[in-house]
Amino acid sequence: MPLTVELGAVRFAYGASPVLEGADLELEAGEFVVLAGHNGSGKSTLLKLCLGLLRSQAGTVRVLGGSPEDPAVRRRIGYAPQGLRVVTSIPVSVDEVVTAGLTPVRPMIRRIPDEDSRIASALKAVGMEDLAHECLFELSGGQQQRTILARALVADPPLLLLDEPTTGIDQSLRPRLAAELRARADRGATVLAVSHDPDDFHAVLDRILVIADGRIRQMSHDQFHAHFDVS
């Protein structure tokens, strides 16, 4: 399978505080991987390097066969940041937020031919089909998080980078989301989900990767629990 994410000996520091030191990572198309680690270990930093929002100070970062700083590459990534980043000055509806996920792939003025069905499909994938026209800020934190996930899914991108995607989402809904992400991976997308608790995805994921001491290591589910003592 082709590689979708390639990090080679990546180094990144915030000022004098190193976060990644010689980090290596290879993800293939169709993989569903959870990236775990302690707070401040560099999980979100790694996602931002893959998105071109941060630049590595040493080493190489290649995404979807190109540089993450290339807008054409970025347009093919679905990104769900941690927490709600949408600012709150003006009411905004759920479908407006999800539609923003199509903007990078949308031609000027014209709509994508199947735009409405794509939006409906993304909302259905996260169980929000009945709330499309609701105001985002009148919804619960879990519903807002699912809206942000739908925005990442709506363009059906070949690479999904999700930062703590289950934050605030009810436990009963998490298996449905995990199954949806698995289905995307089975169709060829790469899913990289940052999560402090891989148990949310245990039944469907391919690998658990852990960032510790600036490097990335693969762990089994049991090794993860032994290491983090969360079971």
């Binding site: 807008p71 970025r74 347009r75 990534i77 980043r85 600012v87 923003a100 903007t103």
Partner: peptide, 24 residues
Amino acid sequence: IVPFYPQLLAVALDEETARAAGLP
């Protein structure tokens, strides 16, 4: 504004995610 409305809205909603998505 009319032709740029979707892009302007995406940036107004979430600048970082818009940047991550390759919008100018």
